[in-house]
Design a protein around this nucleic acid. Structure first.
Length: 563
DNA sequence: GGCTCGCCTG
DNA sequence: CAGGCGAGCC
């Protein structure tokens, strides 16, 4: 029997043309490893479903607030502690805020503001439009600033010009807030909100009779302690803004967590949709190597970037370096260090924010995050920014959730396994460095490393078993010339290997792997043919030969900023 | 002693 | 594929 005929004719009867598949792959290759895989939509859809369900879990607030905030009312979804002096059903208490309610209620509210207890988290002001309820609690806070302004301006009367300057300062500071207040359906006589809205205009046009009427009532608050409280409010607002900016800086650097921490379905959807609009074409990790028109498959791009998918980190990223704090030189920055930096920074920031901001400013912080999400989602519909059904999410829980979302995978996934199998086509004995390079999204530990090593051990085991089996089979078939032992894409041996390591058959197996397989087959054939297999350790020599045939793992498998 | 490897087993 | 085990290496 002709050995060359043996290798092909014996095993190629039902072979498939993988080269044809390869060409097909090339035609469908796209740059984006995560989003361009239209041909694997079925697979991706299942992942998306998982993502959506998991993100919905976060959005529901159950993950953050219910578990983490035992004080939350499980039936209403809102905190049972309602610090706002007015019930939500009264449109922020407008009806109660009348002249007859007296000064005590106002004082109580102002004192609450100063104490940072300005709002009930779940309250939604129904009589406001545009941006007011975007930041439900934050707006509430700003609204109270207007109340303060009104108090001050109403108390101004014919008094000091310095007080006027003070109010003008406040006017300029909160000028952008003025436009958010709607005064519909409320008469100026009975609506304190209207009074607040118009306070400055009334202040400037002191001929307003309504204003004059309120002035006499509000003059109660013109005392020095009230001014101090007013300034305290300003300081509190500044602190809130500073905290918000701090948090924003985190999310600018790590936008991928915005979707999940927000708990806002609209935001989530918009972020998802904006992904497709992102002209940068980069994933959150900014994988540059995927833009190299290398010969690889969609399956590879799926597997390589799959951890992001599994972690619901599907958001795109602007061109700036993704996750660097302090050091903006992304070159030669180990990904592990970047991730660790993110974790540490997020932890510090979140802990810092949680410890510094008062209970009221937690809400401001939360709303700042909320708005930031909208900003990044591009086409922002202000109406979507109102989320009446949005359950109150305990900001402290948010802090923990956010921090956890920064974490790396602490376990290997099935996609890591798929990736490892594809890597086996290049390296049978990967070093720990290569493993860390290729699985940079995994928090390496002894356990993880051992598992990866074990995987490749299992891969080798299967590989060598197949080699021995086919070598013995060739011997029984009477193959006498080792040169006739070849491994080609049509051969049964390759099909068995391909089925094991590349079950989906959508990865272009490198030719080098065929060469290595052929060498291995011949090594086994020779050893068996000369009786070396009687030595219990006869395979060791073969292993030693094969271990020297490893190739470099392509850049697609490695971290994005590795050379 | 810790680690890796291969073999065996489930 | 993972766990257990022993061998070998450093």
């Amino acid at each position: 029997m002709n050995p060359s005929v043996w290798s092909e004719g014996m095993y190629s009867s039902s072979s498939i043309c993988l080269d044809g598949f390869h060409a097909e792959h090339l035609s469908s290759f796209q740059l984006d490893p995560v989003l361009s895989n239209v041909d694997v939509s079925a697979h991706k859809n299942s992942e998306d479903r998982k993502m959506l369900s998991e993100s919905a879990y976060y959005r529901s607030g159950d993950a953050g607030s219910s578990l983490m905030n035992p004080s939350k009312d499980s039936t209403t979804g809102h905190s049972p502690i309602r610090r706002h002096p007015f019930p939500a059903s009264s449109s922020c208490g407008h009806d109660e805020w009348n002249l007859n309610s007296g000064h005590q209620a106002k004082r109580a509210r102002v004192e609450n503001i100063i104490k940072g207890m300005t709002s009930s988290p779940g309250m939604h002001c129904t009589n406001v439009t545009r941006n007011q309820c975007v930041k439900t609690d934050g707006t509430q806070e700003k609204e109270t600033i207007h109340e303060q302004d009104y108090v001050e301006t109403s108390g101004f009367g014919s008094q000091r010009a310095g007080k006027q300057l003070e109010n003008q300062h406040l006017r300029a500071r909160f000028d952008h807030v003025d436009e958010v207040i709607d005064t519909k359906d409320e008469s100026p006589e009975t609506s304190p909100r209207d009074a607040f809205t118009d306070s400055y205009s009334e202040f400037q046009t002191s001929s307003s009779r309504e204003y004059q009427g309120r002035k006499s009532v509000m003059s109660y608050f013109q005392s020095q302690p009230e001014r101090i409280k007013l300034m305290a409010e300003v300081l509190k607002y500044e602190l809130s803004r500073a905290v918000s900016r701090s948090v924003d800086s985190i999310f600018k650097s790590m936008p991928l967590i915005q979707t999940n921490i927000e708990g806002n379905a609209e935001t989530d959807i918009r972020l998802q949709s904006s992904v497709g609009e992102d002209e940068s074409g980069l994933t959150c990790c900014g994988n540059a190597e995927v833009q190299v028109p290398d010969v690889q498959t969609e399956a590879l791009s799926l597997v390589v970037q799959k951890p992001q998918l599994e972690n619901k980190f599907v958001l795109h990223h602007r061109p700036q370096p993704p996750i660097l704090f302090g050091n903006h030189d992304s070159k030669d920055q180990p990904s592990e260090r970047n991730h660790e930096a993110v974790r540490q920074h997020a932890l510090r920031c979140s802990q810092d924010a949680c410890s510094r901001v008062g209970p009221a400013n937690f809400d401001t912080l939360r709303n700042s995050i909320k708005v930031r999400s909208k900003v990044n989602s591009r086409s922002v519909d202000p109406t979507l920014m109102e989320s009446p059904g949005l359950p109150h999410v305990n900001i402290e829980s948010d802090c923990l959730v956010k921090t956890n979302l920064y974490m790396l995978n602490e376990g290997l996934t099935t996609n890591h396994l798929k990736k490892a199998k594809l890597m086996f086509f290049y390296t049978r004995y990967p070093s720990s460095l290569v493993l860390k390079m290729c699985f940079h999204d995994v928090q390496f530990s002894r356990c993880i490393t051992s598992q990866l090593i074990k995987w490749f051990s299992n891969f080798r085991e299967f590989f060598y078993i197949q080699m021995e089996k086919f070598a013995r089979h060739a011997l029984t078939e009477g193959v006498s010339d080792v040169r006739g032992l070849t491994v080609e894409r049509q051969s049964e041996l390759f099909r068995a290997l391909n089925m094991h390591y590349n079950k989906a058959n959508d990865f272009q197996v490198p030719d080098r792997f065929l060469e290595v397989a052929e060498i291995t087959l011949r090594e086994f054939y020779i050893s068996i043919s000369i009786g070396k297999d009687r030595d219990p350790s006869w395979k060791k020599a073969i292993y030693k030969v094969i271990s020297k045939l490893d190739s470099d793992v392509p850049a697609q498998f490695k971290r994005h900023h590795s050379a």
